[in-house]
Nucleic acid binder design. Sequence first.
DNA 1: TGAGGGCATAAGCTGGGGTTATGAGTGGCG
DNA 2: CGCCACTCATAACCCCAGCTTATGCCCTCA
Lengths: 319, 319
Amino acid sequence: MSGENAGPRSEPAEEGAGVPLHHRVPDLGALELLLAVARLGSLGRAARAQGITQPAASSRIRSMERQLGVALVERSPRGSRLTEAGALVTDWARRVVEAAEAFDVGTQALRGRRDSRLRVVASMTIAEYLLPGWLIALRTQRPGTAVSLSAGNTRAVADRLLAGEADLGFVEGLDVPAGLDGAVIGHDRLVVVAAPSHPWTRRRTELTAAELAATPLILRERGSGTRQVLDAALAGAGGLAAPLLELASTTAVKSAVVSEAAPSVLSELAVREELTARRLVEVPVRGLHLGRELRAVWRVGQRPVGPARDLLGLTRGAP
Amino acid sequence: MSGENAGPRSEPAEEGAGVPLHHRVPDLGALELLLAVARLGSLGRAARAQGITQPAASSRIRSMERQLGVALVERSPRGSRLTEAGALVTDWARRVVEAAEAFDVGTQALRGRRDSRLRVVASMTIAEYLLPGWLIALRTQRPGTAVSLSAGNTRAVADRLLAGEADLGFVEGLDVPAGLDGAVIGHDRLVVVAAPSHPWTRRRTELTAAELAATPLILRERGSGTRQVLDAALAGAGGLAAPLLELASTTAVKSAVVSEAAPSVLSELAVREELTARRLVEVPVRGLHLGRELRAVWRVGQRPVGPARDLLGLTRGAP
DNA sequence: TGAGGGCATAAGCTGGGGTTATGAGTGGCG
DNA sequence: CGCCACTCATAACCCCAGCTTATGCCCTCA
C-alpha cells in the first residue's frame, strides 16, 4: 500500500486514508499542463500555452511524476511523448479538467451580472446536470456571450420569466406553466434504484408497479418535481406508500440509498454515474414508464431571439 | 463578461480567455472543504474533517467566495448552511471532486506495486471509463485491497493473464481469447456521431448501413477494437470506405469530428458526455446494431477468488 | 559546424495557505 | 441570571510550492 510501510499494515493505512484527496491528486494547473503536453508534444510548447516558462513546466511535470509514482512523459531531445501509463493518466486528468470547466462556466453564470445578454432560469436538476455542458458549447460557438443563471423550482422559473427578469427558462415536468410557451428539448426518466446488495437487484421476475407503490422508499420531500411525477404514475397502482425517509437533497437521498438498505426513485440524470460505477443498480419495473419532458420555456409571444435562440438551438434533442 | 471592462469588449476578453482555468477555479482542497461544510453544517467541523484549523477553513471559504463572486455559505452563530447558489456550486464541485477521486484511485492502481493482492489488466476503454468507478466501489466495500492495473489491447491482456502476471482481465470485443475463460459483465455499443452542424443530424429518414459504409469517416487506426467491430458489422453492407482520417487516440478522433465536419463511430462510453452536452450528436442507423460485450476474463480453470472475485462481483451487470 | 529546439539544473523571490492567539456573538441550561 | 459551549472573524507570523531568470547539455538538421 501506501509506501514506506510494506509489511503487514500497521496503522489505519488503507491507501492513505485520512489524508485529504488533494494531497494525493495533482493541482488542476498540473493536470492542465499535462493535457497541454499531450496535445502539443513538448514541455516547452505546453509551458508557453499555459503562460509559464519551460523550467516551471519541467519541474511541475517531474514533481507530478514523483507524487504519482508513475512516469508520465518520455522526454527526448526532440520533444516529449506520453508514456503508455501517461496516456491513461491524461485521460483521467481530462475528466477532472472537464468537470472543472463545467464548474467554471456554471459559477461564472451564477455570478449573474445585471448586464448579461442572456438571463437563464432553470430547474435545479437541469442547472446541475445539463446547463454547464450547454454553456460550454455556447461559449465555443458564440464566444463572449455573457450569461447569467439562477435556479429554482418550476414556479420560480415561471415567476421570473413573467416578471421579465429572465429571457429563457428550463423546466422538467409534465406540463407548461400558465403564461409560458415552451418546446420539448429532451427527455428524462425516473428510475428505481437500489444498493447493489438490495434483494430487488437479484429478482428473477420484474417488479410490478403495485409492489413499488407498496414499498416505503427514500424520497425527496413532497413538492419536488420528482415526487410529483412519481405520485401521478403510481396513483393507479394503489398510491405511494408512506416514505421511509424524506430528504431535502438528491445527494442525501443517494447516500441514504447506499447505506440504509432501501430503494429510491431518482432522475436518470442524477444517478447515471452511480449506475455505471455500480454504486447503485437500476431495478426495472414492469410496465411503468416514468418519463418526463425537459422543456425550454419563455413568455407567451416572446419567442427567443439572439443569444437565447442560440442556446435553445444548442439544447434541442438533448439526452 | 470578465469584470472591469463592461463596454464593448476591447481585448481578446471573452470571459477571461487566456487565463488558464485553474486561476478561475478554486483548488481541489477548497472544493473538498466546501463539500465538507455542506455535509457537516459548520466551518469548524469541516475544518477538522479536512485536518486543518477553523481559521484556515474560514479564510479559504471566504477567498473562494471572493474569487467566484458568489456568496456560498450563510454563517450564523450556530453553524453554516449553504446559500441557494452555494448548493448549486457545491453540486458542481462534487463532480470535480468525484473526477479527482477516480483519478486518484486509477493512478494509485497504475503505480502497480508488486505486492498487490489484485493485479488487473484491462483494455484501454474499460480502464479509462469503467475501472476507476469499480475501484472506488471496491475500496468502500473492501478497504485496503491493494490493486495494480495495467492496460493494453486484447492481445496484451491475454498474454499477461496467461503469463500469470495478472489475476483478472477485462476486454471488450466479440470473443474470448484462446486460453481464457470469461463472463459477460456488460454491454457497450458503438454509435455513429457527428458534429451538431453536420447534415446527418438533420435527416428525416434514417441513415442506412450502406450509406454509412460508403462514407469516409474519421476513425481510430486499423487494429483497434472499435475498428474491428465496425468492419465486421459493415462487411455485409459493401465494406467500409477508406477513412477520411485515421487517428491514434479516441480523443483525437472526437475533436476531429467536431472541427472537420466528418462523422465517426465511437464507443458509447467514450462519447456519453459529448452527447449530453450536444457537442456531438448521435446518428441512428437503420437496422444496424453495433453492440459488443464487455467481458471479465481469466485463465482457463482459474476462477477468480479473493479480491478478484470481489471485483468481479462488483462489475456484473455494468452499463 | 554552427544554429536551434528540446530538456535539466541552480539560485532566488513571492504569496497563498497554513498556524496560534484572541475576541465577539448566540443559544442552552443549571 | 450568568456561565458554558458553540459558532465565526481577525491579526500576526511562518513556510514552502511554484514561479522566475540564467545557464548548460544534448541532439538534429541545414
